[in-house]
Simulated scan of single mutants.
Amino acid sequence: MEPKMTIAEMNAFLEAEFPQIDGDFRIDQITDDGCDVTLIVAERHLRPGNTVSGPAMFALADVGMYIAVMSRIGPVGLAVTTNCSIDFMRKPVAGVNLIGKARLHKLGRVLAVGDVLIYSEGMDAPVARASLTYSIPKH
């Protein structure tokens, strides 16, 4: 499905409606089946053991899927996560940005289902995989 929002439009929407994430994420591309989003890793995203924390990776997965859904349905701020399952597969490289590749598998009238593969920048193998379902309000 062709996107309804450009990166510039999405950034403006996020700045107005979701200022809590300002400066943490960068939208790299919006594609026909999802989007690629980067978590700009900072000291606050690290945990003991010198790795990126699970909550930071969860945030990347959730924000990535949110952007994938919004880019398809338009700016409907009240779309919410109804389910998320995340598998942590490898230790991310500390201090290196994480890239989330969000892909929508089903976009229905009330639910969207997709997954996000998370990579440490420069690594070929994913460090985590998340499966998410979003509830879409009437719009």
Rank of each mutant, 00 (worst) to 15 (best):
K101G: 09
I73E: 04
G100R: 00
D87E: 11
R44Q: 08
L78Q: 11
P126T: 05
G54D: 11
P19F: 05
V69N: 15
H139T: 13
G64T: 00
M5E: 02
V116T: 14
T51V: 10
A94N: 04
Y66G: 11
G77T: 07
I99L: 06
E121K: 02
G77Y: 03
E17G: 01
A125Q: 10
F18R: 03
D24Y: 00
M65S: 00
V127F: 09
A68I: 06
C84F: 02
P55C: 08
P19R: 04
M5C: 04
K106Q: 15
A79W: 08
G64Q: 13
V93T: 12
D22H: 07
P48E: 06
Y119F: 02
T6Q: 07
L104K: 09
M5F: 07
D33V: 06
E15S: 03
V110G: 15
A68C: 00
S120K: 09
R90F: 07
G54P: 07
T82S: 14
T133C: 05
G74D: 03
E43C: 02
A94T: 03
D36C: 08
K4F: 00
E17T: 07
M65T: 05
A56Q: 12
D28Q: 04
V37F: 00
K101P: 02
G23V: 08
N50S: 14
E2N: 15
H45K: 14
M10K: 02
I27R: 00
V63D: 02
G114C: 06
G54A: 12
T133P: 15
K138N: 13
M70F: 07
A16K: 04
I21P: 11
V113K: 14
H139A: 15
I21N: 10
A56W: 10
T82R: 15
M5G: 04
K91R: 15
V80A: 12
R103V: 04
N11Q: 10
R90L: 01
K106F: 14
V52Y: 10
L46W: 02
K91S: 07
D124H: 01
E121D: 04
V113W: 11
V127A: 05
M57I: 04
T81E: 10
A112L: 06
M1T: 10
M5L: 12
P55K: 12
A130S: 13
D32Y: 08
A112K: 03
E2A: 11
V93R: 11
D22W: 01
P55D: 12
V93W: 00
L132E: 13
T82G: 09
N83K: 15
I99R: 08
D36A: 13
I30F: 09
F88R: 05
Q29V: 13
M10P: 01
A94F: 09
S85N: 15
T6R: 07
C35R: 04
R90D: 02
S53M: 12
A94W: 02
G74A: 10
F18P: 09
D33Q: 14
A42F: 00
R44D: 00
D33S: 14
